[in-house]
């Protein structure tokens, strides 16, 4: 039986990456175009200038790369199977990031938008909780703090 090109098949090869370079959002978005995809969601997590009432100067991210990549791939693969995505991608940047830089990009493409949104949030939530990557926040007063070490109250 020939598979219909109009029926969304789970993505064969999912893409994950960890990079020290600026994330090329335009190219990643172009790569997500797929004939079966009626909706493409691109989320970019960007460095903001404040945390828990303190002014942030810049961030540094570090990763345990071999295991981080494995875990990212596992999460993206599970999202692809769960929602039969046409395309899924996750890139995390590490090293020193300035205010406004994109730290993470997650892209999900599906025939319909609601699944693309759901799958995107699923990937983001699991990456934040499970992938061995850490944020060190450097504040304008010269202090610094590792994320999640001492969870601030009302951190959202």
């Amino acid at each position: 039986m020939t598979k219909s090109p109009y029926f969304p098949q789970p993505a064969v090869a999912s893409n994950v990456a960890i990079t020290t370079e600026a994330i090329d959002i335009t190219t990643l978005f172009a790569n997500a175009q797929h004939a079966t995809a009626g909706g493409i969601v691109l989320f970019s997590g960007t460095v903001r200038n404040h945390h828990a009432g303190m002014a942030v100067a810049y961030l540094e991210y570090e990763a345990f790369e071999p295991l981080a990549l494995k875990q990212m791939q596992l999460i993206v693969n599970e999202a692809c199977s769960k929602w039969s995505l046409s395309h899924a991608h996750c890139t995390h940047r590490i090293g020193k990031l300035a205010i406004g830089d994109s730290a993470i990009v997650v892209i999900t493409a599906h025939a319909h938008r609601s699944q693309a949104y759901e799958a995107n949030q699923y990937i983001m939530d699991r990456v934040k909780a499970e992938v061995p990557i850490w944020k060190n926040e450097f504040f304008t007063d010269g202090s610094s703090a590792w994320g999640n070490n001492t969870p601030p109250i009302n951190s959202k």
């Binding site: 345990f64 295991l67 981080a68 990456v127």
Partner: peptide, 29 residues
């Protein structure tokens, strides 16, 4: 804890030349 790039439980035995990584709660994204 990860041993040789696999997550393990506390009961996991350690052998000579094992590489252990200790991973605090993630704070990426």
């Amino acid at each position: 804890f990860a041993v040789n790039e696999h997550f393990v439980s506390l009961e996991h035995p350690l052998n000579n030349h094992d590489k252990v990584a200790i991973l605090p709660p993630a704070s990426g994204g």
